[in-house]
Design a binder for these strands. Structure first.
Lengths: 224, 224
DNA sequence: GGAAGGTATCGTACAAAGTATGAAATGGCC
DNA sequence: GGCCATTTCATACTTTGTACGATACCTTCC
């Protein structure tokens, strides 16, 4: 009844669920989630399409699996250590990971089956907040707030037509030119006086918002 | 030989880009974005597949179009009126709209071409913040913070395996049972002491986080 | 060593989906 | 009615997911 889980000899590195999912992440990173097909995945693995079906039931399972893999890449906060710096570190890591795998955000909406890495991650974060002195209820408030911010920020970053500090001018300008300043006066002001200025980087906004949120939570916990 | 329908009572409403996109939203609402195919869309319109291609260049354009339609559903904040209540109203509306069309969140990540309704929306929000006294730079900070929160919250809500105030127990319990309490102690605590309690509704967290954010921004603007 | 039997890989095939191409139908205007 | 632009559709080709069964390979027991 129990399958033999020897796993001793690994001289030829056969296919495995692990390898399949990692290859799927690589394909999605390279060409977007739309480029991830069973055939492209098999190609990445140097194998024929139907071979992957021995390790996953169907494509849905692949999508669930790679979302969990991505969650596993996010640094866990340490239980001992200042809760604010731990949360800050975790948030920065999450943002970095989601920038590396932006397609994961698009999948989140449709995946409602959290994997083990996802659960472990949530458990660790909840643990840090509880240890910091937040009540169970307040922990739920705080966690929802922090994670909403992190995911939402990553989502906005992914939706930007440019990335990094240099591209804003190149892409914002054409968009702006299509519409008169009368139509979107405030956007034009924002663009010309701020976003198109050299050195502007949307990513820098991240620290500000996170700081605001953590400050508020700290005040809350102290004033209780 | 040929039937003349013209004189008949049934007026034939011709296809149009508008109708095509609205039908696409209806299909996606009903069966998820995965169920939106050219064929299903044509079926919804009572028309043959290739007919829709006279109004959109390809499916990508449909996706861009329905995202913009969804943005158009969000209530614009009014320029005159207390900025906080306007922002609160707009945020609540955005959340409601995104709950009605959760697939739009999944599309956001891959759509980098904002449509007119999207631009109009952003323009209105920026306008309210500027009028409230925020500097251009501070407006960028504030807007990124608020919208990150709203999108992220909606994304988390969409990713929940249950909806509303009743389903939590039904779905959280099976997940929890699959893992021992040793493995995810904090999640188990959170589930048993809070989430599984009758009446718990994740959606209620929204107000808390939004309040924290708006309070902080208000403090900022006053201290300037 | 060799056969048995399980496991991993693959070849073939089909259904669903996007869409190119051009024909047919329809409606407006004289 | 006749002419033309616009709208709708029929056909067909390509890509994708995956069912089904065959094959290659590896372990185990004689």
């Amino acid at each position: 009844m129990s399958k033999t889980v020897t796993g001793g000899s690994r001289e030829r590195v056969p296919l495995s669920r692990e390898r399949v999912l990692r290859a799927a992440v690589a394909v999605a990173d390279a060409g977007g989630i739309g480029s991830l097909t069973i055939r492209s995945l098999a190609g990445e693995l140097g194998v024929k399409p139907m071979s992957v079906y021995h390790y996953v039931a169907n494509k849905e399972e692949i999508l669930d699996g790679i979302v969990d893999l991505v969650f596993g890449e996010i640094e866990l906060p340490s239980a001992d250590g200042d809760w604010r710096s731990e949360m800050r570190r975790r948030a920065a890591s999450a943002r970095r990971v989601l920038r590396r795998h932006p397609w994961a955000l698009g999948l989140l909406e449709s995946r409602t089956a959290p994997g083990p890495a996802t659960l472990r991650h949530h458990d660790a974060v909840v643990g840090v907040l509880r240890r910091a002195g937040f009540s169970v209820e307040m922990t739920a408030h705080a966690y929802a707030l922090i994670d909403s911010y992190v995911y939402g920020f990553a989502l906005q970053e992914a939706a930007l037509p440019f990335h990094g500090s240099d591209g804003a001018a190149g892409v914002t300008r054409p968009i702006m030119q299509k519409f008169s300043a009368d139509e979107y006066p405030h956007l034009v002001e924002m663009a010309t006086e701020h976003i198109l200025r050299p050195g502007y980087d949307f990513g820098d906004e991240f620290e500000f918002g996170l700081g605001v949120i953590l400050d508020s939570l700290a005040r809350w916990i102290r004033g209780r």
